[in-house]
Amino acid sequence: MRHLLSTRDLDLDTAIRLLDVAEDMADTQQREVKKLPTLRGKTVVNLFFEDSTRTRISFEAAAKRLSADVINFSAKGSSVSKGESLKDTAQTLQAMGADAVVIRHPASGAPQTLATSGWIDAGILNAGDGTHEHPTQALLDAFTIRKRVHGAGSRGKSLDGLAVTIVGDILHSRVARSNVWLLTTLGATVTLVAPPTLVPVDTRNWPVTIGYDLDDALASGPDVVMMLRIQGERMRDAFFPNSREYSRRWGLDDGRLHRLEPTTIVMHPGPMNRGLEISAAAADSPMSTVREQVTNGVSVRMAALYLLLSGDREN
């Protein structure tokens, strides 16, 4: 794998392979010695143009458990905000001998630009770009679902036959986009539920069903309900009237939680707005995978880094 830029261009075999390698990584994380020598001598740069401590430390843990050297390059408040371009930064990292660059950027497509520009030879791993994609988040979500459903027998399995409902700000969510492509590639049926203002105007190419009514969607008995974080500032742009109305219509509150089958998997990519898109009871219920998602994030990112940095680096 030369780069990991999106889930849209992952085929089924590659996706399953990534999840299976993540299973192997997860196995090693049960041991007393969690560190593997695999990427000894490799340099992984975490290039973050947006604050995200959670994602950065997950990648950092993943790289370090594979014995890579990790350089954290937080571009916020550094030379970058003083007018240094992405190109200059990339060329600096190239000169430092980076083997992989994990990039988080507020502009959609920035990782792809980095990968195709010729500024740098390193493998590029998209850690979230604008409102485009966040492939490792979708992979860890898929991993978490597969593990809940298939347990120890997860290896090699797809998500055939599972119904996943994703609820919230689809328009601005890179997590939603990456999950739509990945989960459907893996065989799941995906339903999106959101206020009409927070759905892209034209979704004809999306392999999903779109609805506006959360209660209708939950009544159909989905296997997985994934709640997305809602940003407070969307209110100011008139996407919805206020948080109370949002919560009442599109929040997973206690009433809706109790109407779910107890086997339903409740997910959230974090960080959560408790009481807004998800109630405290829902977040903490045994149906919730919120903490597993964090743990699995490290295994999935180890797998991604491994596949990015091993093998033939030609091409």
Binding site: R8, S108, G109, D129, G130, T131, H132, E133, L171, H172, R174, R177, P200, V201, D202, T203, R204, N205, W206
Partner: peptide
């Protein structure tokens, strides 16, 4: 706005230009 608002902008996550 970053590109024409439509099927492609929705997929790419670029702010639409209706």
């Amino acid at each position: 706005a970053q590109m024409n608002e439509g099927a492609v902008s929705g997929e790419l996550g670029l702010t639409g230009w209706p």
